[in-house]
Simulated scan of single mutants.
Amino acid sequence: MRLRSTASAALVASCALVLPTAGPSLAYDHDRDRGTLGELHYRFTDGDGDVRRRTIEPADNDTCYRLTNTSRNRSAFWVANETESLALLYQDGSCGGEAVEALRPGERAHDLSVRSVYFKPTGHHHGHHDGHHGGRDDWHDDWQDD
């Protein structure tokens, strides 16, 4: 009888070890299948004065994203919106106050000082714009050459 209790306890303990890891794994696979809104590229100057490039891949609209590696003294000065959403750029790190720039899909902006971005849905997807920010091909060449 004691052997059966020990075996049952071992089975319960092994299930307890397996079950908690299965949940996050399934959630991760689901998120990967869902994809992202696209990519937002940005440039900032690091503490040594070198220009750095970063990309974020937002997963959701109606969400604020801090631009990684930016701070009060090191904000992003160049941004290209290659998402399917409107990107509202903010000077602070938590999308507070008024947006300093709004970029439609495919647009870019420079001479900025921003640290966060808020994505809003838009009916316009993956377009090319010939406004003052330049078209997608222009920013792509500019992004790769520097």
Rank of each mutant, 00 (worst) to 15 (best):
N61R: 12
D141P: 01
D130G: 13
H124M: 06
D60T: 13
L88Y: 12
A109Q: 05
H132W: 01
H30D: 05
S14W: 00
P58F: 11
E101S: 06
A13E: 11
F77R: 04
P58C: 12
G49F: 06
V79I: 03
R115L: 07
G97C: 04
G106T: 14
R34V: 13
S14A: 09
D111R: 15
N69R: 09
R52E: 15
R72V: 12
A22K: 06
D62Q: 08
H129S: 11
A102R: 15
L112N: 07
N69S: 08
A99R: 05
E82S: 10
Q144L: 15
H110T: 15
D146L: 06
D50T: 01
R4G: 03
L86D: 15
V100A: 13
V114M: 03
D29T: 04
D60M: 06
G123T: 10
Y118N: 09
Y118T: 00
R115E: 12
A27I: 04
V117A: 09
T63C: 02
E84H: 07
R2S: 13
L67P: 09
R136D: 11
D31Q: 14
H128L: 05
E82A: 12
G131C: 02
R4L: 15
R53E: 04
D50R: 02
P105S: 09
M1N: 11
L37A: 05
L86H: 10
E84G: 09
H124R: 06
F44W: 06
F119D: 02
D130A: 08
G93K: 08
A80P: 05
I56M: 03
T55A: 04
L26Q: 14
V18R: 07
E57Q: 14
T68S: 08
L112C: 07
E84M: 05
L67C: 10
A87N: 06
R115G: 02
D48G: 04
V18Y: 07
D62A: 10
Q91Y: 03
A13T: 15
T55W: 00
R104N: 14
C95A: 12
K120R: 15
C15P: 04
H129K: 07
C95R: 13
G135K: 13
R108L: 05
Y90P: 00
R43Y: 02
A22H: 05
Y28S: 12
H41E: 02
H41A: 02
P58E: 14
R108S: 15
R53A: 02
A76T: 01
H129W: 07
T70I: 08
T36C: 10
L89H: 07
G93R: 10
A80L: 01
G131F: 00
V18M: 15
Y118I: 00
S14G: 01
F77M: 07
E57Y: 14
D60G: 05
R32Y: 10
Y28T: 08
A87L: 04
H129Q: 09
Q144W: 12
R4N: 11
L11H: 00
T122F: 04
H126C: 08
G23Y: 11
N69T: 04
A13V: 15
R66G: 09
G135A: 14
I56A: 03
R2I: 15
